[in-house]
Design a protein around this nucleic acid. Structure first.
Lengths: 224, 224, 224, 224
DNA sequence: GATGAATGAGGATTCATTCAT
DNA sequence: TATGAATGAATCCTCATTCAT
C-alpha cells in the first residue's frame, strides 16, 4: 500500500521500486482519487476472480463490479494480468506487514506444536479475510507475466516458511530446508482448500488435522 | 452396455468401454472410425487441457490438435464440458481397472510404510502417464456439470483411499476415516504438484517426502 | 402421389411430368422402398416445418425425425428447398385429387352461401389434415426456387378459385376476376390462421365469420 | 430523448420514455452517439428483416448494414430478439403517436365507408413507410420472447380496432366485438400483403377491394 | 441404398482493449 | 480523469452438404 506516494508536483523521481509504469512506459501518476479507484478496482477484481477464476474473469465484469467504465479500468492497469499482479503484490505486502514480525524469527525453543499452530492459524485467518489469495495461489493455467506473479507469491511464501523453519533445522542443508518448505507450503495449500470447503465444527476439525500433518511431518526432522 | 448390434451377421462383441448413449435417444450407433475419432479427440483434449487449462481451452484448438474440423468434434461431443467429463470418466475407469484390485483391500498386517509407498508409487505413475488427471483434479473455476465431474473424480479417489485406510483404522468412526481420507488426498495432490514440477533426483526426493508426510500423518492413527 | 411410377427395369422413358431429376440431372430412380422413404421424409419434413418453420428447419432434424441418416435424405433430395417443393407439389396434387372435381365447375344456380360454405369447409378440412400447407403458404422469407414453389402453390389456389368464381361472374373482365380471386384467397388465408388459432366453439365461430366475410364480399359482385 | 443528464450538477430529470434500464441494473446512461447508433442499428435491422425475414437475418448482417462491427451491435442489444422487440416497440409507439388520436374515438355518426377508408388509408400509409411492420406482423416461426413481442404488436392492433369498432357496435357482446376485430385485422393483413405486392393502378385497385371487403363485412353488423 | 463421419463456412455472442468526447 | 462507444478477433456451436464404407 505504501509504494505509490507520488504527489502531482513531484512526479518524476527516478523509479524507485514502488514506482509503477504502464507497459509502454508512460509514468502513471496517481492522486488520492486515483488511489481510491485502484483500491476499488482491486477489490472488485478480487471478488470477480473469486467467483469465476482468473481466466474466466472479464475486465468488463471487473469494471462493472467496481462501478466504473472499462475505460477507467484501463487508465490504471494496462491489462488484465496487471490487475492480478498488483493484487498479488498487495496481498504479499499485507501479509508481510501483518505477519512479518510474528512469523519470521521464532525462538527455536518454542515447542513445534505451538509454532505450527500459530503459523497455521494466522495463515488460515489471512486467507479467510482474503479469499482471492487462494485463487491466486492456484496459478494461472496459462504462462505469462501472470505466472511470474504467481511464482513470486509462491516464492514469498516459501521464503517465509524457510525462515520459520531455519531455526528448527540448524544442521540441515539449505536444499533440504527448501524442499521441506515447499512440502509445508503444499500441505498448507491443500489443507486450506479443505478448511475453506467446510464450516463450523468440521472446519475446526480440518484445521486440527492440518496442524497434525505438519507437526508430525516436521517433528522427526528437528534436532532437540 | 449391449446396445450396438450393428450388423446382424456379426452382432455383438461385448461392448468396449466406449459405448455411449445420448440422454434422450436410441443408442448411438458408432462406426469404428468414430470410436477412433473419439479417442483421438480425447487425446487432443487432454493435451490442450494440460497446456492451457480447462477454462482457456477452446474447442477449436482441440479439434485442430486432433486434426479435424470443429464440426467433427461436435459430432461426438455436445460441448466442451462433455469432453472433460468423458475424459474424466475414462481416466477413472482406467484407474479402477489398473489399480482397483491392488489398492482396494490391503492386508492390515502390511506395514504402513509399504502400503503407502505402493499407493503413492502407483498414483504418481498413473499421473505421469496421464498428466490431464492433475489438471482435471484442479476443478473448474466455474460451476456446471464440469464441477460435478470433478467432484465425481474426487469422490472416487476419496472412496478408494477410504477403502485403503479402512483396515488400518478399524475402530475409527466413519466420519473421521472420511476426513482422514480427504486429508490424504489433499496431501497426495499437493505432493503430486511438487513431484511433477521437478525432475530426476529432485523428483525422487519429493516422492520420498510425500511418502514421509503420509506415513507420519497416518502412523499415530493406527492401532497395532 | 402417382407421379413416380418408374420401375427399375424401364427406367428411362422420356421425362413425363412425374419424372423427377436432381439438380445436376442424374435421373433419380425410385423403387418401392424409395417411395416409402420419400413419403417418410416428407412426413418428417412436414412435421419439422410446422414446428420450426422452413428457414429454421434443419435437414438433419428432418432426417432424425424420419429416423434416417442425413446421407439418406440427400439420396432423395438434392437440398432442403427440394424437400419443400416436393412437399408442396404433393399437397397441390392431393388437393386437386381430393377436391378438384368438387371445386371446379359449380352450377351458377347454386346459392352463393352454399358454394362458399362448401369451399371453405373443404379448405379448412384440408388444412387441418395438412397443417404444413399453411406453413408453406406463408412463403419463404428468402427468394429462390422455394419462392417459386410457393408461388406455384399460390397460383394453383388462385386458378382454382378463379374457376370457382367464373360462373358467378360471367360479365366481369378477367383481370377483375383474377383480382377478386386474389382477394378471396387472401381472406381464406387470414381466416384460416384465425381458425387454426382457436378451438371448439370459438373455432366454429371463426369459420362462420370467414364464410360471412366471403359471402358479403362476393354477393354484390354477382349478377343474378 | 432528454435522457443524458451526465454531469452531476444536473442529476435527474424524471426518466423520459427513451430511458432504458437493463433488467438488473442502474439506468443505462447513454450518450448522444449511442442513441444515434441505436437508431442506425434499428434501421439496418428493419432493412435486413425485410429482405431476409427475421429467422434468416443475422446479427452480423445487421451490423454490416449499419456499418458497425458486431461488437457494437451487442453494446446496445443483448441479442437478435431484443432488436426485433425494440423495433416493434418503436413501431407501436410511432403508430400510437401518429394515429392514436385519429383512430381511437370515432363519431358513430360517421358513415362506415368513411371510417373504414380513413383507417385503411392510414394503415396502408404507415406500412408503406415502415415495411418491417408487415414482416414483424408475420410472427416468428419460433417461440420465445420474440413471439411475445409479436403478440404484443398484434394485441395493440386488435385493441385499436376494437376501440374503433366499439361505437359502431354498441349492443354487441364484447366477445363478438373482439372476434370481429380479429377478423378485421386478419383482413387488413391479407389485404396489405396484396397491396404491397402490386404497384400503381393495380395497387389502388387492391386498396379499394380491401375497403370493400371490410365495409361489406361490417355493414350488416352495425345498428343504425 | 444406407449409414455415420466429415467438412468448413457461417452465426450468435464475448471480450480485451482502444478511442472519442 | 471518466465515460460509454467501438473494434475485431476469437469462442462455441450449427448446418447444409459431401464422403467413405
Amino acid at each position: 500500500m505504501s509504494e505509490k506516494p507520488e504527489n502531482p508536483e513531484n512526479p518524476e523521481k527516478p523509479d524507485g521500486p514502488g514506482k509503477r509504469r504502464t507497459a509502454d512506459e508512460r509514468p502513471v501518476r496517481r492522486q488520492a482519487r486515483g488511489e481510491r479507484r485502484i483500491a476499488q478496482l482491486l477489490e472488485a477484481a478480487a471478488s470477480v476472480f473469486c467467483t469465476t477464476g482468473y481466466t474466466a474473469a472479464s475486465t468488463n465484469a471487473i469494471a462493472r463490479e467496481a462501478g466504473v467504465s472499462p475505460g477507467t479500468l484501463y487508465q490504471f492497469f494496462p491489462n488484465k494480468e496487471a490487475i492480478a499482479i498488483e493484487l498479488g503484490d498487495r496481498l504479499m505486502h499485507e501479509m508481510r506487514d501483518a505477519y512479518g514480525e510474528a512469523l519470521a524469527p521464532v525462538d527455536p525453543a518454542t515447542p513445534l506444536e505451538e509454532a505450527v499452530a500459530a503459523a497455521v492459524d494466522r495463515f488460515i485467518d489471512f486467507n479467510c479475510r482474503h479469499p482471492v489469495f487462494f485463487t491466486l495461489m492456484h496459478g494461472p493455467d496459462v504462462p505469462g507475466r501472470m505466472a511470474e506473479q504467481h511464482d513470486a507469491l509462491h516464492a514469498t511464501l516459501i521464503a517465509r516458511v524457510e525462515a520459520l523453519l531455519g531455526p528448527f533445522l540448524p544442521d540441515t542443508p539449505a536444499a533440504d530446508v527448501r524442499r521441506t518448505a515447499q512440502v509445508c507450503v503444499g500441505i498448507y495449500k491443500a489443507g486450506l482448500e479443505l478448511v475453506l470447503a467446510h464450516e463450523g465444527a468440521e472446519r475446526e476439525a480440518y484445521v486440527r488435522e492440518l496442524k497434525n500433518v505438519l507437526v508430525r511431518y516436521l517433528a522427526p526432522l528437528i534436532v532437540d
